[in-house]
Design a protein around this nucleic acid. Sequence first.
DNA 1: ACCTTAATCCGAAACGTTTCGGATTAATAG
DNA 2: CTATTAATCCGAAACGTTTCGGATTAAGGT
Lengths: 337, 337
Amino acid sequence: MSLKKIAQTLGISVTTASRALNDHDDVAKDTKQKVFKAAKAMGYRPNASARSLKMGKSYVIGLVYPFHVDVLNDICFTQMIDSLNKELNQLGFDLLLIPDENKDEIPVFHRLLSSQRVDALLIAHTFMDDARLRYLVKHQFPFIALGRSNLSAEFAWFDFDNQQGIRMAIDYLVQQGHQKIAYIGGNQPLTFIHLRRTGYVLGMQSAQLAFNDEDCQMTEMNRRGGYQACQVLLTRHASQIPTAIITDCNMIADGVAMALEQYMQRNPKRTKPVLITYDGLPLDTLSNYPYSTITQSTRNLVGKQIANMLVQLLAGEEIKNLQVLWQPVLKIHSPNH
Amino acid sequence: MSLKKIAQTLGISVTTASRALNDHDDVAKDTKQKVFKAAKAMGYRPNASARSLKMGKSYVIGLVYPFHVDVLNDICFTQMIDSLNKELNQLGFDLLLIPDENKDEIPVFHRLLSSQRVDALLIAHTFMDDARLRYLVKHQFPFIALGRSNLSAEFAWFDFDNQQGIRMAIDYLVQQGHQKIAYIGGNQPLTFIHLRRTGYVLGMQSAQLAFNDEDCQMTEMNRRGGYQACQVLLTRHASQIPTAIITDCNMIADGVAMALEQYMQRNPKRTKPVLITYDGLPLDTLSNYPYSTITQSTRNLVGKQIANMLVQLLAGEEIKNLQVLWQPVLKIHSPNH
DNA sequence: ACCTTAATCCGAAACGTTTCGGATTAATAG
DNA sequence: CTATTAATCCGAAACGTTTCGGATTAAGGT
C-alpha cells in the first residue's frame, strides 16, 4: 500500500500517481480515475510520516489543557473538543491531546514542538498569568489560546465576552427590581473566571448597587464548592439573603441549585432567590430549581470557528486578525415552559 | 536544528552524530559528550516524521473511547489516562485521543491506521459486542482492549475482575447477615457493566438468596440515573426495602447516596441501608452517606501496566501473554474513622 | 511540411533520520 | 616489522512522499 505499488500495478510512474491523488491538473482525467480506483481498492493512504517529512507539516494540532476532573466535568469543554476534533479531521488534521499544567518549568509540550510533531497548539483554559503562553510567544511557535490572558505580547485567541455576559445578567436582574445580587465563582486564576467576576463588580457599580465582599463568593470549581458557598449566603439573617444569585459555571451552579432547593424546602414561605448560571446546569443534575442561563447557543459552531482560525494561522494570517470575541446570549427561564 | 547542522558545527559526520545521540557503542566517549552537549545547546530533537519514516514506527499510540460525558465524568477513567499518558511519554510515545463510537460502519480510526500514524490502539470501554475490536482483528492491527469482549478471536486485553469484585461485596454482606441485597447498574452494553451485573446474579445464587428482578435496577450511568433507581427501591413497602445496595460505578453511586440520605432524613427510625459502590464516590459529592468501596487501590499502576503491555505488543509478544486480569479490593467503611 | 502550444507524463532530487558495510587509525601480538 | 584486532569513524542508501524541471506526444495553425 505504497505509492510505488500503485504505480507499478498501473504501469505509471510514482510521480503521476502522486499528482493524480492530489488532484493536480496535469494528469489526464481517466488516469486520475484509474489511480483513484486502485488506491481505494488497495486501501491506500499516504504514509503520514513521509508526507509530513516532505511537506514540513505534521498535520497534527496539539490541544493543551490542565487535566483536572473539574475541567473535564465541564460539558461545554468536552462538547467543544468533540466538535473541534470533527472539524479538524475533515480538514485532514488530527488532534493530539496534551495534559499540561500552567507551571513555570519547561512545559510538557516542549518535546512535541521541538520534534515538530505538531503544527500548532491550542491552549485551553488560559490563566491571567500564563507561563505556557509566554513560552510559546518566546519561542515563536504558532498557537491559538482559547481564552485571553494578560500577556503583553500579541497572540491569537478565541474567547467569549465573559464580562459582558455577566453584565447582561445583572442588567436584567436590576430591571426586574433586584437589589441584592450575589455572585458565586471559582477560585482559580483562570482568565474566564477573572473576567466573569469583573463583570459582576462592574455591573454592580454601574447599577449603583452596594457591592459587598460577602456577596461575592470564591470557591472550588465544582458541585461541592457551589453548595458550600451558597450555604454561606443563605445562613444569614433573612433580610440579608440575596434575592438573586449568579454563578460562574455549570458545576458550581449545580451545588447552588441543590442548596437553594433545600433552603426553599426548609423555608417555603420565603421569596425564592432567582438563579442565573453561566452555561446552564450539568446534564445529570438532581435539582429541579428554575434557572436562567448565560450561554452561547450553538456550541459546535465554536469548533468550526477555531478550526478555521487554525487554518488561517498556519497559512500565515496576521495575528491581529486572529483575535475573535463572541457575544454570549441570556436565556431567561419562563415559568410557563 | 537538524542532525546535519550539529554534525557540521562539530566537524563530524551525520552518522556519528546520530549514533552518538542514540548511545551506540562504536562512538568514542568524549565524542558522545560533545554531541550531547551541542544537541542540548541547540535545542535539538530528532524530527519525528523523519524518524518515524525511517524506523517504520510512529511512536504514537491511539486511545479510542466513546466521547460521552458519562464516560469522561468517571474519575477512574481520567486518572487512568493521565497516568498512562505520563508513562508513555517516558517511553518516547505520545498519546493520540480518538473519540469513536461502537458503530458498525467504518470506524473513525480507520484513517489513522492506514496512514500509519499510530503504532497501536487502545480501546477503552469495550462493549460485549464490539464492532471496533472485530474491525481491528480482521485487519490484523495491533491493539490492546481495556476490558474484555465476547469476540471469538483472541486479542490482547487488560481488565479487572469485575465479576469477582461484586461477588466479594455480596459475600461480605451475606456474612454480615444481609438477606435483601439490591443492585443498581448502568444500562449500556458495556462489558464491565455486564460482568458486574453477572457478578451480582451469580453471587446471589451461590448465597442462595432470592433473586428478584426489581432488586436489580438498570439505569442511566450518571447521578440522576442512580437517584431515580434508588427511589424505586425505597418507595416500596418498608419490609421490602433492601438492607444493602450495591452500585455499578461512582456516578450512579452519587445519586444513590443522595437518595439514601434524603430517605434517612424522612425516616430516621428505619435501619440504614448499607451502601457498597464500585470505585467510590465522585470527588465533589454532596453526600455524607457512609459507604464501602470495591476498588483497585493504586490507580497509576494501571497506566504503568498498560504502557508495559503496549511495549511488549509492539515487540511482538504473543497475544496469549497479553491478557491480564487484576483483582479488585474491597474496602470496608469502618464508622470509627 | 514546419513551428507553436497544450496535454500528459516521468526521472531525479529532496525532506531528516538510521544503518549497513566498509575504511581508517592505533594498539597488540607474533 | 608485519599481521591481527579493536576502536572509531564515515559514505551512501533507504524509508515514502512531493515537486522541479524537462521530455514526449498530439493537436492546431500557418
